[in-house]
Amino acid sequence: MRVFPVYAPKLIVKHARIFLTGVIWVKDLGRLEFEKGRFLLPRKSLPKVKQAILELNELIEAQN
């Protein structure tokens, strides 16, 4: 598990694309899981977490 002390979308996306499957922890967002290079949306999450995951997945799609 990698810990990101700040929310840096480009760096987080780079990590997810390299490792494809895993878990990261982002300060103020908490634990985020990714599989096959995409972030998974938890069943229950705060609106800011949901927005961050959608933003990260959009960045991943834009890079493909």
Rank of each mutant, 00 (worst) to 15 (best):
L29Q: 00
L20G: 10
F34R: 01
R17L: 13
R38K: 09
L40C: 10
K50D: 06
L32S: 03
A62K: 08
E55P: 00
I18F: 14
Q51I: 08
R43C: 09
V26D: 00
E35G: 06
V6G: 04
V3D: 13
P9I: 03
K36C: 13
K48S: 06
K50G: 05
I60M: 12
V3K: 14
V23Y: 13
L32G: 02
I18V: 12
A62N: 10
W25S: 05
R2Q: 15
I24E: 00
L54K: 12
L41Y: 11
L59E: 10
V49Q: 07
V49E: 04
R17T: 11
T21N: 09
G37Q: 06
R2A: 14
K44C: 11
A62L: 12
K44F: 08
L46P: 15
L59S: 04
Q63C: 13
L40I: 08
S45H: 13
S45Y: 09
L32A: 00
K44S: 05
V3P: 07
L11N: 05
I60T: 05
Q51A: 11
V3H: 15
I60G: 04
R31M: 05
L11E: 10
V23G: 02
L32W: 01
I12M: 05
A16W: 03
Y7R: 01
K27I: 10
L46K: 15
P42L: 09
L11C: 13
Q63N: 09
V23R: 14
A8N: 07
L32N: 03
W25E: 15
I60Y: 06
Y7C: 03
L41T: 11
V13L: 04
L32E: 02
E55S: 06
A16V: 12
A16E: 01
E58K: 09
P9S: 03
Y7N: 01
S45R: 14
E33F: 14
Q51R: 12
A62Y: 10
L46R: 15
E35Y: 10
K50M: 07
E61A: 13
V49D: 00
P5Q: 14
D28F: 11
I60V: 08
A16Y: 02
R2K: 14
F39I: 05
R43K: 08
K44V: 05
R38H: 08
N64E: 11
R43Y: 05
K48N: 07
K10A: 13
I12V: 04
I12K: 01
P47S: 12
I53A: 07
F19V: 14
F19A: 14
V3R: 12
F34T: 00
L54F: 09
S45D: 06
F19I: 14
V26E: 00
I53K: 00
K14T: 09
Y7P: 01
R17Y: 08
V6T: 08
W25K: 12
G37E: 05
F39C: 03
L41V: 08
N57D: 01
L59K: 05
Q63G: 10
M1T: 15
F19P: 00
K50F: 10
R43N: 08
R31A: 02
K44E: 05
E33W: 15
F34P: 02
L32K: 00
A52D: 00
K36H: 14
K44A: 06
R38P: 03
L40K: 14
L20F: 07
K50S: 07
P9L: 02
E35M: 11
P47T: 11
L59F: 05
I12F: 00
K14M: 14
K10P: 12
F19G: 04
Y7I: 02
L56W: 01
I60S: 04
L11T: 06
N64A: 10
E58A: 10
I60H: 04
V6S: 04
A52Y: 02
L54Y: 11
L32P: 02
V26C: 05
F39P: 03
E58D: 08
L54V: 08
N64Y: 04
G37D: 03
D28H: 14
L54G: 09
Q63H: 11
Y7K: 00
E61Y: 06
E35F: 10
E35C: 13
L20D: 10
L29M: 09
L41I: 11
T21Y: 05
L40T: 08
F19T: 13
R17I: 13
T21W: 06
G22H: 02
A16L: 05
R31V: 05
E61H: 07
A52L: 04
P42K: 14
M1E: 15
K27E: 15
I24D: 00
V49P: 03
L32F: 14
F4T: 01
E55I: 05
H15I: 04
V23E: 15
R43A: 08
T21K: 14
K50H: 07
